[in-house]
Every structure is written in structure tokens, then in C-alpha cells.
Amino acid sequence: MSVAAGGGAPSKVEPMKLRIYGVVGGLVGIYLASLLGPMTGNWASFIAALGVIPAVVLGANSVRRVCSYGIGTGVPSIGMLALGMGIVAAMFGLAIGGVIGPILGTAIAMGFGYLIGLITNKAIKFNIPVMEEGTMDLGGAGAITLLGLSVAVSGSADYAAIQMSVIATGYIAVVFIAGSLAILHPFNANLGPDETQDRTLTHAISTAALAIVAAGICGIGTIGLPSVLTVIVGFLVWIVYFKKFFQLVKRDAAGVVGTGLLPPSAQ
């Protein structure tokens, strides 16, 4: 594999800071939504979806850190790995953890991620210095994204409720793919020599917002009207951050010019 010059992408925001924001923000969202759920008649479920945003930013940042070394397989593989690790750990945590389920699931996902990083460096001989840290963050981000979107769909962090309204209905597939795309797409779309952290992470917020919209639409089938709020919140976040992303694209581009329509002769 090719190692990027200088070893890794330059970052303005420290990974540790993003890790704390991502994990704490995501878990606070999940717990707030499931605590307020019964009181507000599930109108608070959008908070869990909002908590997904810092987790996706954490995931996108670690995709950026690991993939800037060049992993040879394309960026999507690592996003799929994140949710693959995340789903098993998250469901395990929920099933055995009870109230502390989401915390347990996230912790297990991060531990499992660290191990995956370790074996890819040792057995597959990747020799990427940030691999262990990167896959640890990815596991955590995957688990929180999955849990947050699942809580947004079901309105509760209870294992039985998620079983019934997310897994048995098949919405888990939407949550899985929307969540992994949210994590993998930002770096996949922005990579290159002119990639900047703020642009990639702003893009991550907008892709997380789209995942929220998807989860909100699924939620209409399970918790009904309150899920419309999730869709609206997701759209608002998307509009704001996609505009911001586009500004950053214009800032980083050499030039933005209108090409006009094709001349009639070219058709």
C-alpha cells in the first residue's frame, strides 16, 4: 500500500476531542431520548438521532485518518467494517446490559475495534500507525450510529422494543446502510491532495443528517407522527450544513465557473 507523505492527514481538530464529543454526545442523545420518550409520547426521539451527528463525525474523522495512508481497497470497505463491528457489539450490549446497554455496547465495540486494528497490523501486516486507534473509533462510532438511529426509529433503548420495531420490521437494513454511508461517504467524496479536515467533517454532518431523515421516515411506520419531527430536524440540519459544505468546496476549489448549457451542435 502507498503511505501518504508525512504519515497521515493534517488535522486541525484533535482526534481525542472528537472521540469525547462523539461518544459522549451520542450516548447522551440515546439516553435523553429514551428517558424523555415515555413522558413526551416519543416526541423526544429526534434527540437520539441528533446524537448520531457527533458519532458520525468521529467515524468520518477516523476513516479520514486511516484511509489517508491508503488501504488499497477503497474507502467503502472500512465504513462497512465499522457498522459490521458496531451491530454485533451494540446488540450484545443491549441484550445483556439492560440500562447500561448502550454504554456497554459502545465500549465493547471500541474494544473489538482496537483488536481488529491490532490484528490487521500484526497478521495482515498493514503497519499503519493509527490503525488500532482508528478502528477503535470506528467501532464506537458504528455502534453509536446504529443505536442512535435505532432509538430514533423505535423511541426507546429497550432491547425488546428495538427487536420488535427495528429488527423484525427490517428497518435495521436501512439503519445499517444509511449509517455506514454517513460514515464512509465524507472522506470518499473529499479525498485527494487538497482534502481538508473541516470540509470533510462538515460534509459528515450533512451525511449524518440524511441518515437521520432516513431513520425518521422508517420511524413513521413504528412510532408514527413524532417521527415526522425527526425528518424535519434532519432536513434542517442537512440544508444548513450542505450549504456550509458547498461554501467550503468553493473556498478550496481553484475556481468555480458556470459552464452554461451544451451548445446545440454537441448534442
Binding site: 459490521g84 463491528m85 454485533v88
Partner: peptide, 17 residues
Amino acid sequence: GLSGIFAIGIFLVNAVL
């Protein structure tokens, strides 16, 4: 449902490795 999505998770982790 649970088995299916779990199998996908295990499948993806091994395929990515």
C-alpha cells in the same frame, strides 16, 4: 431478523479483513 443482520455483520467483517 436478528440472525440475518448479525450474519451480515460477521460476513462483512471477514470480507473486509
